[in-house]
């Protein structure tokens, strides 16, 4: 089978009684990629991942992981993937090392190799300090790392993580993300999330799923370029409001302006330039010329969040 693609999904459909969770999606993931599945709750992310991890079958379509069919060659596939389900279920009564050892044995590791791998993932996921603790007593961040360690313990080629940072505090999120990034050096990673910065920061490619369909699939940068035609410039200037309004109206590059008062004498102006031109140098020159004081001048790039909201918004609700 082809060596370059790790996951090949073609025309995958999954119907539950009454509704269609995933409808006729196709995508491929190459070896060594980090791909983010992005979507609202109920968009079909978990369903797709469950099918990929051989937990349940597809209604129709084929899914191959590392060249093996997930339905007919489930054992081969399972050996090659490390899967961390949503909410990261663990056995709370077990100790960290004991749990990882148990999981490693289930995955077919034994003896010395098993011990070595458990030691390795404990180190890799920074669990050394808590390796003797009972899982129920760990913080959520640590528990999440135990889940990751479990997914890694048998050196899978593909790692599937369903919402790996859900419910963590910002510091924990950062450390889990860093960990995922480090993994990408040796593994193919598929993560799902509805937190956009996560995808922006970690993934090399994004698939946006909505109501069981793939709406967009590209690199985060490319998706942003698509949107950059309508970026905004924010300027905070100390000047009378009327003069500001007049100024923006005189500038032909500015299509639309919105002025709101900020603290002190300052006004916050949100400016939408025509055709995506960068108007910052002109604004700076104008302000300097008039002797006003400016304390902020930024161009806000559309984040994936905006792209996502656009893409998933029901038709006919477009706004500027």
């Amino acid at each position: 089978m082809s060596n370059e693609s790790m996951i090949e999904v073609s025309n995958l459909t999954k119907r539950y009684a009454g509704h269609t969770a995933v409808s006729n999606i196709s995508f491929t993931v190459g070896r060594g990629e980090i791909v983010g599945l992005l979507g609202t709750n109920g968009a079909g992310k978990s369903t797709t991942m469950r099918i990929l991890s051989c937990y349940m079958p597809a209604t129709s379509g084929t899914v191959r992981v590392a060249g093996f069919d997930v339905f007919t060659q489930a054992d081969e596939v399972r050996r090659r993937i490390g899967y961390m389900p949503e909410n990261n279920p663990l056995h709370p009564e077990m100790r960290v090392r004991e749990y990882l050892k148990f999981r490693a044995r289930l995955k077919g590791l034994s003896g010395k190799h098993c011990r070595e791998r458990v030691d390795k993932v404990i180190e890799q996921c920074a669990l050394t300090d808590v390796s003797r603790k009972i899982i129920a007593h760990l913080s959520k961040g640590y528990r999440q790392r135990v889940g990751l360690a479990d997914a890694l313990v048998h050196e899978p080629e593909l790692i599937i993580l369903d919402e790996p940072t859900i419910g963590l505090d910002p510091n924990q999120i950062r450390s889990v993300r860093q960990l995922i990034k480090d993994l990408a050096k040796n593994h193919t990673v598929l993560i799902s999330t509805h937190i956009l910065p996560e995808v922006e920061m970690t993934c090399s490619r994004v698939l946006i799923l909505h109501e069981g369909k793939i709406l967009a699939a590209d690199t985060p940068d490319n998706l942003q370029k698509l949107m950059s035609n309508s970026s905004q410039v924010i300027a905070e200037i100390a000047a009378p409001r009327a003069e500001l309004e007049q100024l923006w109206e005189q500038m032909p590059e500015i299509e639309y302006s919105d002025i709101s008062p900020a603290e002190g004498d300052f006004h916050r102006c949100a400016l939408t330039p025509r055709n995506g031109t960068d108007v910052r140098p002109q604004i700076f020159a104008m302000v300097q010329q008039r002797g006003w004081i400016m304390r902020e001048l930024t161009r806000s790039r559309f984040s994936l969040e905006d792209i996502y909201v656009r893409v998933t918004r029901p038709n006919g609700e477009e706004e500027g």
């Binding site: 051989c54 937990y55 399972r78 993937i81 961390m84 389900p85 279920p89 663990l90 709370p92």
Partner: peptide, 14 residues
Amino acid sequence: HTGTFETLMTTPIS
């Protein structure tokens, strides 16, 4: 109930 069934059934065990 806890979801560990999912992690169990995605290991190579019949």
